[in-house]
């Protein structure tokens, strides 16, 4: 066993895939598969026993599923790097994996092309992401900026009231009834608020209202 070999634990419930991966990885001079597990529970037991350098982890598994196993593995074998190999290309899964301490996220449909480089990147201490995912993650999380604060100050009392009611989930008709206006007028106020705040949807209005604490006194 050469000291430069990367010791890998394969975790996937599909035996045929495990065999294929085993063969593929073992064919590499710097990689060696030291163990295999078919479910999350077995993966934790194996990892504690083998202390691998890297764990190749599937997310869909019987008994303990991948995400829960991931968190548990980080706790038991913190020195092992974890690369997730999955069919899910949802950003939400990716975020969960990264939040739980996964070092890489690889899609199975790219396994043939990117697996080897991903393993080496992650082992070297880097993070491996699919290029599309990296792009999505780099999107700045929307934050309140000073221009919106100014815009908020520019709202009239009526506009602010309409904004609050929209954010509370009232329908245009209900807002019209509550403020004793016509539905058309409510619609106009809403458009004006959206223009002033440079927002294009109800969802954005709700987010804005929550972020700026417009509902605090109403929700309490």
């Amino acid at each position: 066993m050469s000291p430069h070999e990367i010791r890998i634990l394969l975790v996937d419930d599909h035996a045929v895939l495990r065999a294929g991966l085993n063969a593929l990885l073992n064919a590499q001079p710097d990689l060696v598969v030291v163990g295999e597990a078919g479910d999350g529970q077995a993966a934790i037991e194996q990892a504690e026993r083998l202390r691998p350098d890297l764990i190749l982890l599937d997310l869909n598994m019987p008994r303990l599923n991948g995400l829960d196993a991931l968190a548990e593995l980080r706790r038991c074998v913190p020195q092992s790097r974890i690369l997730v190999l999955t069919m899910h290309d949802d950003e939400s899964y990716l975020r969960q994996v990264l939040a739980a301490g996964g070092a890489g996220y690889l899609l199975k449909q790219a396994a043939d092309k990117e697996l080897l480089s991903a393993i080496r990147t992650v082992y070297a201490g880097g993070t491996f992401l699919h290029s599309e995912h990296a792009h999505a993650l780099l999107q700045p999380a929307p934050t309140a900026d000073s221009r919106q604060d100014e815009a908020l100050a520019a709202l009239s009392d009526r506009e602010r009231e309409v904004l609050q009611l929209i954010a509370l989930g009232y329908s245009n008709k209900e807002i019209a009834e509550q403020l004793i206006l016509s539905v058309k007028t409510v619609e106009t106020y809403k458009q004006r608020v959206m223009t002033k705040l440079n927002l294009s949807s109800r969802a954005a209005l709700v987010r804005f209202a929550l972020r700026h604490g417009l509902l605090d006194d109403l929700l309490a």
């Binding site: 996937d12 419930d13 599909h14 045929v16 895939l17 065999a19 294929g20 991966l21 063969a23 593929l24 064919a27 869909n60 069919m87 199975k108 449909q109 396994a111 043939d112 697996l115």
Partner: peptide, 18 residues
């Protein structure tokens, strides 16, 4: 589809790579 067919296809993919 996801688990069985998907995994089989991935296996094929990995095998072909090998």
């Amino acid at each position: 589809l996801h688990d069985d067919v998907g995994q089989s296809l991935t296996s094929i993919l990995v095998g072909l790579k090998l």
